[in-house]
Design a protein around this nucleic acid. Structure first.
Length: 219
DNA sequence: CCTGGGATTTTCT
DNA sequence: GAAAATCCCAGGA
């Protein structure tokens, strides 16, 4: 793994949809007890503005959603279905609520720890599973990377324990899957998952993923 | 391949 | 009190 470079403030100041697509191929870095977990982002969803009925912010500023109205580059993490977390990156200037949900990663390093984080206390045979099962869903990747509400509001631009990075060699366009000279991955747009209640907004093609990537959560 | 139900608790009505 | 930006497992085709 060649040198990683942390993404800085200006990266997060792009508009939400550009940022969502730019995130594909970037890396999530998580430090726990001096050890590093690393995953490549392969699937995201945008939640945009006060009118987006799929967004928590469509019901206004509340104790939970106030972070979405905050500055770009913060982590928005919430509990879902009583037992899972989802990890988002806040976008857009203050008072305009928007965020990008990270839906799937390709696990890059620290896989043994990810297995532990996902399957501790469960009677699964860890090593039968394909590695994609570690992080091919928004709450799976939170388990694997030990992301929970303690990190809500964390600043990804300055944090030493959770942040985003890029590999300068992959600057133009992300490569998916194997490293051996593949063509640049294409970005596929699709409907967002699990938002059937969102009226017209359920049809928006605001999910983005790397085409044919084996680590996405769904086609 | 697909469909349906249970887990579990915060959040907002 | 209902719903939720999910996951996992069982059962049927």
């Amino acid at each position: 793994m060649s040198r990683m470079r942390r993404l800085t403030k200006n990266f997060y100041q792009q508009d939400t949809f550009k940022l969502a697509k730019s995130l594909l191929g970037k890396y999530l870095v998580r430090k726990i007890n001096n050890k590093t977990l690393l995953g490549k982002i392969v699937e995201v969803e945008a939640y945009y503005g006060p009118d987006d009925l799929a967004s928590h912010a469509s019901r206004g500023k509340t104790p939970r959603t106030q972070i979405m109205f905050s500055q770009p580059g913060l982590a928005y993490i919430y509990l879902i279905y009583g037992m899972y977390y989802c990890f988002n990156i806040v976008t857009e200037a203050k008072n305009f609520p928007a965020a990008v949900l990270i839906r799937a990663l390709e696990p890059i390093s620290g896989l043994p720890q990810m297995y532990k984080n996902r399957y501790l206390n469960k009677k699964k045979d860890n090593f039968i599973l394909h590695p994609s099962a570690l992080t091919n869903g928004p709450s799976k990747l939170c388990q694997a990377f030990k992301i929970d509400k303690k990190l809500n509001g964390h600043n990804l631009i300055t944090s030493r324990i959770i942040y985003l990075a890029e590999n300068p060699k992959e600057k133009i366009s992300a490569n998916s899957g194997s490293a051996s000279g593949g063509k640049p991955s294409q970005i596929q747009s699709a409907k967002r998952i699990g938002v059937d209640y969102a009226g017209d907004y359920k049809h928006k093609l605001w999910r983005f993923y790397l085409k044919n990537n084996p680590f996405i959560s769904s086609k």
